[in-house]
Design a protein around this nucleic acid. Sequence first.
DNA 1: CGATTGCCGACTGTCGACAGCTTCGATTAC
DNA 2: GTAATCGAAGCTGTCGACAGTCGGCAATCG
Lengths: 228, 228
Amino acid sequence: MSSSNAIGDSTFIQQRNLVEQVADYLTQAIIGQKFAPGERLSEVQLARDLGVSRAPVREAARLLESRGLLVSQPRRGFFVRALDAAELNDIFDLRLCLERHAMARLVENFDADKEERLRNQVEVMCEVASGDSESRKIEEDLVFHRMVISFSGNRRLLKAFDDITHELRLCIALIGKTHADPDSISTSHWLLLDALASGDPERCREAVDYHIGVARDYVVQGIGETAP
Amino acid sequence: MSSSNAIGDSTFIQQRNLVEQVADYLTQAIIGQKFAPGERLSEVQLARDLGVSRAPVREAARLLESRGLLVSQPRRGFFVRALDAAELNDIFDLRLCLERHAMARLVENFDADKEERLRNQVEVMCEVASGDSESRKIEEDLVFHRMVISFSGNRRLLKAFDDITHELRLCIALIGKTHADPDSISTSHWLLLDALASGDPERCREAVDYHIGVARDYVVQGIGETAP
DNA sequence: CGATTGCCGACTGTCGACAGCTTCGATTAC
DNA sequence: GTAATCGAAGCTGTCGACAGTCGGCAATCG
């Protein structure tokens, strides 16, 4: 994460692959709703706009396809992923599956250090809850959940979570808002922390089910309002 | 491998993308132990051997990287994924997570049709258990588990399972053998079916835990023998 | 004799170009 | 007026080529 390059970030960016830069640009553009869901993306036009050739664009598009932000049709090109309510339900169901497992593993090896770091993150989220941008709130929320998965000790589980993270950002962006109540976000996460601190697996599972259930219902309802 | 036209010589080869064909070839080569774990793959050499240009090779390699069969280092190229015991444990732990969830969802909506199709598949596995090739046994086993996930109704869960399927094939191929006892494979799967038919979620969970646990212990033990 | 430096070969990252396919609008037949 | 047809434009799939970079080897210096 921290750049081991003592020179600075400017050279680091210069040395980065064009593929990654294009992928970042496309990711931000899709999350930022610069493209409509289902819209077709032209490789040549993207290459022209970004001042690069088609090769990096193609590879970046393939990368985003594997992340679920784009879908490709042979001989037709890439399209922005369009999510319906059913797919949204599936994504949150998978997230529930992963986070249940992570919590169950984490509660077996919970310690003071992990508790403190999670507590600090929740406090960051509380500070951000009112005032900062929506995307900032989302990112800090994802950081917390990623920490939980990471602390569970299973790196492959973390990769699976990172995979659906991109789709989560997409569908959260689609409904254009996060939590209705800025307080609910903090209380809900304190609940998760308390469950972990109690050491009770059943309580952890209940806390996760409640937390993910609320988020899913909110997003699915938001999608229903957006595109009925 | 073959010097020229290793992928295919018919005229209809153009109907499928070269990327997919190269990806299939590379997948079979990696699963078939034609490349050593950690071995570096040269794009130009692969392109020469397959009689195509580097572009399809690069895109296929990126695809296999997303599937966990290759890893890439910037400016250095692609390397065959090498799995250690810890990663193997993580993979089977994630598989346990996914299959537990699928079984829990499936037992809620289990019906006679699904039961019959799963039963037929287990019978196929029993027929194949003694005599056919190892890869055939593995594939039929994966078909059964994929059916369970598929019947659960969550397509995103199925995609997550397909993602780790490639890694499962890799690590199973690494140890070079499947189940020690050809009978254990059938009894273990009948146990899963009976648990589903009983409609008891707790019994389903126990059956999955036992099934995946046996498979994990066997593979992890096999890896320990292969590369201690 | 060990460490450093310069060089060489090979490789990856990127580019522009061509062929075949897809799409969409104009045209024509009914 | 409608529907099918045809053609042009744009697109993707694929290719060969060039430049910058990395790793290894040898020559040089302490």
